[in-house]
Design a protein around this nucleic acid. Structure first.
Lengths: 196, 196
DNA sequence: GACAGCCTCCCTACCAGAAGGTAGACAGTG
DNA sequence: CACTGTCTACCTTCTGGTAGGGAGGCTGTC
């Protein structure tokens, strides 16, 4: 029987969901076993240790993000629209509660307590995201498609921080609408049409 | 022998430090016992359960914040300076690694997996902080001391999100300077002297 | 002043369950 | 036969938590 999803994928998916709600120490092999419908020991066949599992998960998460962003860049050219699309992506995820939090943002908050291998992957994700946003800001600045008040690098970091902080607030208030509400003024400020 | 700090305070302090690095599930009674120099069972005398301990901790954290902010409001009148002082407070905490992360921001990220009593306290902290920042924004807008581009409430939420997101980035990159660098443009934009 | 009673704080010893992980057997497939 | 994936059974360590006892300090009463 050819399954659409391999067991290994199912394990990663359920682990991602569990991490998104409680972080690295917030889930166990037993939790995954319960969700996937498999025995605890069988998980070790796919991922010998918890570190292996989460490192793979974050690695995969970054790869998926790279693919997603490449696709986004292919469909959308305008830098401001790219940023809007990125924000809208997260707004949707939070709205329908499918992926209400960025795995790496959550793991970053508990970085000091993370196994080094996982911590390294999380840091790599931040560097990747930051690099992409910086490239968008740079191009937007060059083409006059974005209204920057600081260096592209700084604007990129500030934008990323806003997104992560807004996720946190949406979670704290329990109201998804908070996320787009926080991002809206940031996006408006970056818009060239309303420049001074 | 009159101790300056009660054992109960020492427990709370070490628990706070431990939570700041790994979150709710990132520490145990044994960890605290090791730091304080007491036996595990003795902690239960002061805090019957882990939920009691962390709930008290967050409660106390909010009370301390209320006192600190009242003192700040007493010393500083100008709204922009208040926001700068608030940002500077965190910049210092991150710089000298004394309190490199807001306990509530960290706990908020794992909210869905938190015991309800703790979750309630964390949410209360967010409401409190948001209310204060909104009041600062409102007054700044009224007095012309702040240059707002949105409603005070929205500006307050955006500011708070920036602070939390910047904390996350500082942790992810492992470089404290990132925090003030991210906050600087936000504070500059709020400054009335550079208004259009 | 003596002393009984109580209270606070910490201790040792223990518990049940959950944690991550291992060993080895079995079934199905190429 | 070898390989893959799952299973049962088991291990060790850690988890939050409990029971009960002992030392020391207050206080009320004779």
């Amino acid at each position: 029987m050819s399954n659409l999803l391999t067991t290994s994928d199912e394990i990663l998916t359920s682990a991602r969901t569990l991490i998104m709600s409680g972080g690295y120490n917030g889930f166990s092999y037993a939790d995954i076993a319960g969700v996937v419908g498999i025995r605890k020991a069988s998980i070790h066949h796919h991922f010998p240790s918890k570190v292996d599992l989460v490192r793979t998960l974050v690695e995969r998460y970054r790869e998926d993000a790279e693919v997603g962003i490449a696709a986004l860049e292919h469909n959308v050219q305008d830098p401001l629209e790219l940023l809007k699309a990125y924000a809208a992506h997260w707004a949707n995820c939070i709205e329908d509660a499918s992926r209400p939090f960025c795995v790496c943002a959550l793991l970053a908050s508990e970085l000091p307590a993370l196994p080094p291998e996982v911590a390294g992957e999380v840091k790599a994700f931040f560097r990747f995201l930051s690099a992409w946003l910086t490239s968008v800001m740079e191009r937007g600045s060059r083409e006059g498609a974005l209204n920057l008040s600081s260096q592209p690098r700084v604007e990129a970091e500030a934008f990323m921080a806003s997104v992560h902080g807004a996720m946190l607030s949406a979670r704290a208030y329990g109201t998804p609408e908070v996320f787009p509400a926080i991002l809206a003024p940031t996006l408006q400020r970056l818009s060239p049409t309303v420049a001074q």
